[in-house]
Simulated scan of single mutants.
Amino acid sequence: MKNVELLFPELCNIYGESYSVTYLKRCDPENINVIETNHKTQPAFVTQDVDMIYLGCMTERKQEMVIQILSQYKDRIRELIDKGVIFLITGNAIEIFGNEIRDGGRTIPALGLFDFYSVRYMDRERHNSQFIGNYGDLKMLGHRSQFSFAYGEFENNFIDIEKGIGMNPDTRREGIHVNNFYATYSLGPFLILNPYFTKELLGKMGLDQSLCFEKEIIDAYEYRLNELSRNMK
């Protein structure tokens, strides 16, 4: 049985991110156990072996709350990343793992696990866009809707952007990929949007790579990819 920990779904599910984990379980319900961790309880990963940890998008206020919670376990998170435990981090949850978040005259210390910082532009309109990128041989799709951007070298980026923007409008590098730690600004049920990547994660956990509604979800992926390829600059 593989344990997948869904962190703080009551706080971190603005665009339906938690359904990535629901979908993953539906792909292999007999072999995946989902642990839903409330923000008022200690995460299972602190004392238990877990195979995957998921954290999704949240409001800016909740972001600071989650930083406070996870700061207690920073060393354990680093240990799990080094050991190759799978992490999937989506939306502005990625910013929690950088050095700091700058918000006007405030600087909010983050976990400092990766060398970058984020800047909130709350006085501007929210940035909304989609992207097509490459992760190895896979075409990756993503949606973003955010007030903030991240800045750094991002040498260990997750996705090389083909169309759209990366961690900020001046880079084609998107996300973070170190060992089995994957983080992206993309929103929503990322695993449904990217079925071939979902197959890869199942394989990394030693599970069968068959997907729930495989034909339908791959057909939808191909349709989105073709539409975006035709319509995006």
Rank of each mutant, 00 (worst) to 15 (best):
I108E: 02
V34S: 02
Q146L: 15
R78L: 14
K83W: 05
G142I: 07
E64H: 06
D123M: 07
P109D: 09
N92D: 10
H143A: 13
T47C: 06
T22M: 12
L113Y: 00
E64F: 09
E17K: 00
H39F: 15
L141D: 04
T59L: 07
K74F: 03
E64V: 11
F45M: 08
H127N: 12
G98E: 08
N134I: 06
G56L: 12
M52C: 12
L80A: 05
V85Q: 03
S71R: 04
R144C: 12
L138A: 03
C57G: 04
R102K: 15
Y73W: 03
D28A: 14
F87R: 00
N134Q: 12
P43V: 02
F149A: 11
F97D: 06
I35M: 07
I108Y: 05
P29S: 11
I14N: 05
P29V: 06
T41S: 13
Y151G: 10
I132W: 03
L141C: 08
I132C: 10
T107E: 11
F87A: 08
Y15C: 05
E64T: 04
K25N: 09
L111I: 09
Y23Q: 08
V21R: 01
N38G: 10
S148V: 09
F97L: 12
R120C: 14
I89H: 01
M65I: 14
E125Q: 09
H39W: 14
K25V: 09
G142S: 08
L113P: 01
Q68W: 03
T59G: 07
K40W: 08
Q48Y: 02
S20M: 11
N99D: 14
I81V: 15
K25T: 06
S148Q: 11
T41G: 06
L141H: 02
G104P: 00
G84F: 11
P29M: 10
I132F: 10
S20W: 04
R102W: 10
T59Q: 08
K139Y: 06
S129I: 05
I108K: 07
R26Y: 08
N99W: 01
S118W: 05
I94Q: 09
N99M: 12
E79V: 03
D103G: 02
M58K: 01
Q146M: 15
D82C: 14
D75G: 05
Q130I: 10
R61V: 13
M140S: 02
K40L: 15
G142F: 08
D82Y: 10
Q68D: 09
G104M: 09
R124V: 04
T59K: 04
G56Q: 01
R76C: 07
R106F: 08
R144P: 01
H127C: 14
G133M: 07
D103A: 10
S148A: 15
Y54R: 01
C57T: 06
R26Q: 13
G98K: 01
S71N: 11
G84L: 13
I32H: 02
L113H: 00
D49G: 04
I108V: 13
I132Y: 06
N31C: 11
I77D: 00
I14E: 05
G133I: 07
M122F: 07
F114A: 05
T41Y: 13
G133S: 09
F131H: 06
N128H: 12
Y117I: 12
G136L: 12
R144N: 12
E30A: 12
E30H: 04
M65A: 13
F116V: 11
P109E: 07
Y73P: 02
L80N: 00
L24G: 07
E100M: 13
I77L: 15
G136F: 06
Q130S: 14
N128S: 15
M52A: 08
P29H: 04
E100D: 06
